[in-house]
Write a protein that binds this DNA or RNA. Structure first.
Lengths: 147, 147
DNA sequence: TTGATTTGTTAGCTATATCTAACATTATAT
DNA sequence: ATATAATGTTAGATATAGCTAACAAATCAA
């Protein structure tokens, strides 16, 4: 049961907002993604059906354990691609942000790991391999640089 | 009037088949893409509406000038990404083929050019810049390597 | 040359993902 | 405490992209 790009986008946004605010609103998600509240409502109901979030009408949006771990993975995939686009190719932040979002959804775990390790190596963040693994934990260096 | 991913995929396939066979059949496209003939029929009608191909029921599929140039651009974008995945990241051919297809549709021209130049430089195909431009012509080195 | 096979088309269905408009609920301010 | 504003939901529409099943046209073989 793979998520659609759209579902990934919503899940990622929920995860990111959760890390800044204690309360997430449908309207906020809608504004952030440039969608209508109705669309967000559809989306969160589909995520609920996948058991990635808990939600009752007019209630709080909460990530389930599974939802949280999947969201983190999505965010990190995003970060890997962004790191490459900015630091290796020299893209602008804004451009990288937009493209990373789209790119990361189509990459396999294997390619993401390869890309992470390549980028880290090129940037001298480790001699050969930073040990990054998309299914495991975020690389310390990436976290420090916040990319 | 940007093409959808689906339309790009069909256009690319038509372009590639055109370069191997003189006659393209709906069934052939369907087999190649793993879609039904009905779906292909829909798709070619939408490409016709965009004036990217000429087609009359039961007739020959022909790329228009615009369709041909757009298709070439799509194929080349594919090649750039594939070159990077195979030669820089060390992906397998099969994996690269699948991922490149998906990735290239989401990259901007600017990023594609940056990626092409970076990859070429890394591979020593030119000292700094091979002059590749997605809107212009295929790089000679890429053509030679057939990637 | 006509019957069978292949190829192509059409109609109608499904699912996703969006929207608008109308309505319902909750929160806020006075 | 209640009117207003903000927020959330629902219903119904649209568009894309796929499917199956039935049909039509073209090709091929005997």
């Amino acid at each position: 049961m793979d998520l659609t790009n759209s579902q990934e986008e919503y899940l990622k946004t929920i995860y990111i907002l959760k890390n800044t605010k204690n309360e997430i609103r449908v309207t906020e998600i809608a504004n952030k993604l440039g969608k209508t509240k109705a669309s967000v409502n559809n989306a969160i109901n589909s995520l609920k059906q996948e058991k990635l979030i808990n939600y009752e009408p007019y209630g709080q949006i909460e990530l389930t354990k599974e939802g949280e771990s999947l969201a983190r993975k999505i965010v990190e995939a995003n970060d890997i691609v962004k790191l490459f686009l900015i630091e290796i190719l020299g893209s602008t932040d804004e451009n990288a942000e937009n493209e990373a979002k789209a790119i990361k959804t189509v990459l396999s775990d294997d390619t993401l790991n390869k890309l992470a390790r390549y980028t880290h190596k090129e940037l001298g963040l480790s001699s050969l391999d930073c040990g990054y693994d998309i299914n495991n934990q975020r690389c310390i260096e990436c976290a420090r640089r916040n990319v």
